[in-house]
Structure formats: structure tokens, C-alpha cells
Design a protein around this nucleic acid. Structure first.
Lengths: 146, 146
DNA sequence: TATTGTTATACTCTATAACTATA
DNA sequence: TATAGTTATAGAGTATAACAATA
């Protein structure tokens, strides 16, 4: 009874893929934190800044995208604002809303951050172009994108 | 000069793969944190407990594996020990060392945690067996394993 | 009344530095 | 002296609850 014969365990290949993905996740995260650190940013600050580099967003939307409580966003934006990387703007359409926006300096840092990700180069460099396309297709399918 | 013609930018396929990996990382992390939360564990506690479920480890080694300072491990092990999921044992070979070990309850929780990872089933379920094998091979190559 | 953002609070994770007990 | 683990401290992220301004 301790090991029901019909326990739905993933097959061995799936289990190994999950483990490999875990390794990729660990490596990617490590790389991201390091790249953020090179700009004296925490991971959370780097993620928020990267979002704002695309478009200004209300504090509430930032919380949704970062999957955290709105009260946290206040503090993270505060710290980025002190450093001149982010600014708060009023929303003409709704005076309750504050739009957080990356400054020019903030966008510059975000771009350097993105380009500093080693993971974009080294591990993938070991694959041929055909293999990268194959990997792209499999990841798309996995994520339900394609 | 603002955009050097020979700036080594990854090709478009590589860039898209990196973005897809970012999505996978976000999804995996979210899933892991949620699974941990279902057992009232933080992510750091879940990762430490999962390591100890394999084998007892000196505090120092735990810090190395978790890539954090040894002083942090003290607190995380403290909290898991209060809940009876982990215990500290002396190392007969070196009285300076404390071996952290998962209790039986701790190993049970670690197993449930592992089996609770939805990511092990849903996204990969959309791939055929051949595709999963192909993905396994590509990830191995990427990580320099195979 | 409902929503947006903030403040106040408490807990966890994190790094640094200083301490202890062993080696 | 050097190493293993701890303590003390401070900063940052997190969730919860209560609040002011606006809708």
C-alpha cells in the first residue's frame, strides 16, 4: 500500500527532462542574478526595470506581472526611483493611478542587463543552427505557444 | 557609433530560444514556489529539504550547494528543525562539523513536494515520446552533460 | 461602494563581520 | 593558524491589514 501500483508517475524520459529543465532553470537564474548584480540591482529590481523598459505601467499592473502584492511594488519602485532609473507619472485618465516609467538611464541599464546575459550565448553556442531551431519548436510546443 | 556594426548580437533564433527559456524558467519557478507553499515551506526551505532528502550534509556543504553564505543555512535549518523536518547530528570524524539530515517526516514532505510539481506532467504531456527524447538530448548538449 | 496606491508590521532570505569550538 | 558553525546586524523581498484619495 505504500507504493500503489497505479501511482501516476511520469515515465523515466519525462523525469529526466524535468531534471534537466531544473538544471537550466538554476543556471539561468544564477546568470540573471549575476547580471543584475553587475549593475547593483537585485533580481526583483532587474525584473521590474526590464518590464518598464518596454512600456510604462500602473503600479497595479506591475504587481500582476511580477506576481506579488502591490505593496511590494511601492518599495521596489522607490529604490529604483532614488537611483534615477524609474519615475512615477500621473495618469491623465485616472488620478488614482501612478504610471511607473523607466527613465532614459533606466532603459540603458535594462539594455545592458539584457545583453549581459551569458546564457544567451555560451550554452546555445554548442548547438548547431538546426538544433537551435529544433529546440525552439519543442519549447514552443511545451509552452503551448506555437 | 551608437550601434557598432559588428556588435556580437546573438542571431534571431538564439534570441527567441533564450526568451522561451525565460518563459520556462518563470513557469517552473512559479510552480515550484506554489508546490512549496502547499507544504507551508518557502522556496529556500524546499530546496534545502530536497537536498537533504538525498543525503545528510554538513552545513558548509549545504551553503555551497545553495550558493549562499553559511550563516543563512543556520536560519533555514533552524526553521525546518523546529517543524521536525530536519535534524542536526554530530559528525564522528570532526567535532566541528554538524550534519544536517532530513527526518522521516522531512523525507515524506520532500517526496510529496517532488510529486506535486505540475510542471513534470502538463507541459511535457503535449509532446510525443520521440519529442521528449529529442528535447532531452538537446538539453543535455546545452548543459554540457552528454 | 469600489479601486489605486501607500503605509505599517512582521517574517524570511541575504551578505558581512565578529565570535566559539574545534582541528 | 585555519576551519565549521553560530550570532549579530542591516538591507531587501514578501504578505497582510488598514488607510487616504479618487472613481
Amino acid at each position: 500500500m505504500s507504493t500503489p501500483p497505479n501511482a501516476r508517475r511520469p515515465d523515466p524520459v519525462t523525469m529526466e527532462v524535468v531534471e534537466l529543465i531544473g538544471d537550466v532553470v538554476a543556471r539561468f537564474y544564477e546568470d540573471y542574478e549575476e547580471a543584475a548584480g553587475e549593475h547593483a540591482l537585485t533580481g526583483a529590481q532587474a525584473r521590474l526595470l526590464s518590464l518598464l523598459a518596454l512600456e510604462p505601467l500602473p503600479m497595479r499592473k506591475l504587481a500582476l506581472k511580477l506576481k506579488c502584492e502591490p505593496s511590494n511594488v511601492t518599495g521596489i519602485v522607490d529604490r529604483l526611483e532614488v537611483r534615477g532609473l524609474v519615475e512615477r507619472r500621473p495618469d491623465p485618465a485616472d488620478r488614482r493611478v501612478k504610471l511607473a516609467a523607466a527613465t532614459e538611464e533606466g532603459r540603458r541599464v535594462a539594455r545592458e542587463l539584457r545583453e549581459g546575459l551569458r546564457f544567451a550565448r555560451e550554452p546555445l553556442a554548442g548547438l548547431s543552427d538546426a538544433e537551435r531551431r529544433s529546440l525552439r519548436e519543442l519549447l514552443r510546443r511545451m509552452l503551448g505557444v506555437g
